[in-house]
Design a protein around this nucleic acid. Structure first.
Lengths: 413, 413
DNA sequence: TTGTACGCGTTATCAA
DNA sequence: TTGATAACGCGTACAA
């Protein structure tokens, strides 16, 4: 490791300690571009120092696609290229062009080629509004999801987006912080061919009570079943039970469940779901005393406030030696509370979350979690929805997937 | 703390250790619903044990909104209620109904009331395709964002969604893992009134080279400026310099920068941006030797692979005593690498990330970061876009916001 | 204050 | 293999 001198900003970096000194990727390209209408020529130099292949491929695209912006019409609206424009240039009718574009019906090969060339030159792209008006299909799917800032929801949206895009559909993301009624109305006002409801763990029950008002085919993804519509069910129970049994096997005495809701004479509705039931069931089977901890009275409480609540609880009641959290968010908040109070994981407390967030692995110690097979679930949801759209009268479609316990150091004593 | 007996699943929980034992929220509601066409009556009991007020409000909605699904037409398409349907019932023309719905033009109060009542009864919602076709406005905005599984992007999308929704616009989320060309094409094919480009840190330069092909008004949000279009600029330099100066003041000798890209004779394009420049500049000013560490040759490398690369680097070259990371993701990956190798933060290494992700605060020790004022940035972006849509010919709109260093324990020696 | 006529861009249908 | 026609639902322009 040689010693280096300081240098001014903007100068080349001489020699640095570096993990990647294998190759210098610098290349210079002369990029020639010709405007289609004006015939104007442009040349610009581009220096590529990037290993990302797509950049190099894009140089070609830039060269071939260079074109001026379309002129605007007198009324200020952008003049877009329509089927008729292409038809006029090609000397055919818009119907022929339509057939070529859709790839359906009989068109003479020569005609097809001409039309395609012109369409490309004019940079044609179909007006979806016109098509939707005629066909009644918008080629879009609404996704109703929970708060995207929850990585769990973001992940679902991402996976679904990949699915839809692959099938040539677009995604409309719906999400409201307000009344569910607004969400339902928004859904109906949104021109889509179908709806997927996902990641609304806390609201799904309420939502389902209103979903008769959604006019489009509708698929549920989640941890509750439905009697009225297609759904994908995530079965968390086996993994929850496995986690508790691991804690028992590790000799832990006081195994508690951290959830959302008010714990009173009756469990809060928020927690009368599958995870809580599984926890209570296995605790009963093991002859243990259940302990329910409310980290947050409702879902709309900030993370730091939950940390405060949990610290208060642990200070007042002492800390259990095994903690099962309703989701990874709360597991992370519990982690923070435990750290603040000086507890050690896993020596003093075992900790496990639920959702399978990748971030869990990065904490010290790495945090265990219960993971759902999200890729498969999302793929299946899209499959169900496509089938339902194609034929609204097919019988009820349902599947369930088992979640899997991911054991990391936070669960290994 | 009394001792408790186990109980069977599904029974009431007798008495539990609990943080919230204040109140039992159980209420029972009889819900009466009447079908509008059939006159059929339904009653169901709902038990509310939730503190979430919206649930209670929704009971009323359910009662008033109950309605059967619309019948389907012979051709299978869902029969939707149109302006004409309402007009027929109300004994007016569709134009009158249109005026009422848009709230524009003169309509007699009595007529308006009748129309509104009927529209509500028929559960009318406007066909966006028809409106878009006529007006050329879709009421939708495309957001081109990076990978939503990056919390940074998810946050932006969330904030923008709130902005758009508040203005009565819808959001179309565009994102491709493939060629940028596809993304551009998708943008044009998507019927939207405008585009916001955000969170494409790694690709924004490439993208900008192609953005002439985007037909709609377009706003950039990011850490690079543009000469050709409206943009919001996040100025990270002052905060980066502040972080380095803090490390210097703390007596740290070897202050390195962890970024993405290949470090060779020339810095990779990925890292020839504002953060790297600010780092190099302040190191130069302080008379220090810069050290650039490539955690990942390109952006599409998995987090765990980056951890591996970083560990390899630290094992080979030893560990710097101050680390500045290009973003929070990489800061978290660096954290994991340091933990695996037994380094202590902040005793052995000071660590700071960049993005202002909330999750940073939950690590032990809490990790410092550089935060952009995202709410303001997103609000401004939407403001710019609205202005540009209203009048495409207004002069270039630009603003810049300074990022702020958030000092936590990882930066306090 | 309300109505008539027309066209936005596309495609289904039928005719040639 | 291609063309003519009509219609999808809405809103602008103008007439009454």
């Amino acid at each position: 490791m040689e010693s280096l001198k300081p240098f001014a900003t903007g100068t080349r970096v001489p020699r640095l300690r570096t993990a990647f000194q294998r190759c210098s990727m610098t290349e210079t390209h002369d990029l020639q571009m010709v405007g289609e209408r004006t015939g104007e020529e442009k040349t610009s130099k581009i220096i590529v120092t990037s290993p990302l292949q797509s950049l190099r491929r894009n140089l070609q695209i830039m060269a071939t696609q260079f074109k001026e912006r379309q002129p605007t019409r007198d009324d200020g609206r952008l003049k877009t290229v329509t089927l008729k424009d292409i038809a006029k240039v090609a000397g055919v009718t818009s119907m022929t062009v339509s057939r070529v574009m859709k790839g359906e019906g009989y068109v003479a090969p020569a005609t097809r080629e001409t039309v395609l060339r012109i369409a490309k030159e004019l940079n044609y792209s179909a007006n979806l509004a016109g098509r939707a008006l005629k066909t009644g299909r918008t080629g879009a799917i609404a996704i109703i999801s929970g708060d995207l800032t929850q990585p769990y929801c973001a992940n679902i949206v991402c996976l679904l987006e990949a699915q839809l895009t692959a099938s040539g559909y677009q995604m409309r993301l719906l999400h409201t912080r307000g009344e569910l009624r607004d969400l339902i109305n928004a859904t109906n006002a949104t021109a889509v061919d179908g709806v997927i409801i996902a990641g609304l763990h806390d609201l799904v029950e309420e939502f389902r009570a209103l979903d008769r008002h959604i006019m489009q085919p509708c698929i549920y993804m989640g941890i509750t079943k439905s009697s009225s519509g297609d759904y994908i069910y995530s079965n968390l129970s086996p993994a929850v039970e496995e986690a508790v049994e691991l804690m028992v096997a590790a000799g832990r005495q006081r195994i508690a469940y951290v959830g959302v809701g008010v714990v009173g004479e009756t469990l809060s509705v928020f927690d009368t779901e599958v995870r809580t039931r599984a926890y209570l069931s296995v605790m009963n089977r093991e002859g243990r005393v259940p302990e329910l901890i409310g980290a947050s009275p409702t879902y709309d409480v900030s993370g730091l406030e939950r940390v405060r609540i949990l610290k208060e609880y642990f200070q007042e009641h002492g800390c259990p030696d095994g903690l099962l959290c309703v989701n990874d968010d709360i597991a992370i908040q519990t982690y923070r509370a435990l750290m603040d109070l000086g507890y050690r994981i896993p020596q003093d407390v075992l900790l496990v979350g639920c959702d399978g967030l990748p971030i869990m692995e990065y904490f010290e110690p790495p945090l265990s979690t219960i993971a759902q097979p999200m890729e498969e679930i999302c793929a299946r949801a899209w499959q169900f929805l496509q089938a339902r759209i194609a034929n609204p009268d097919i019988p009820l479609q349902t599947t369930s997937f088992d979640a899997k316990l991911v054991v990391r150091r936070s669960l290994a004593s």
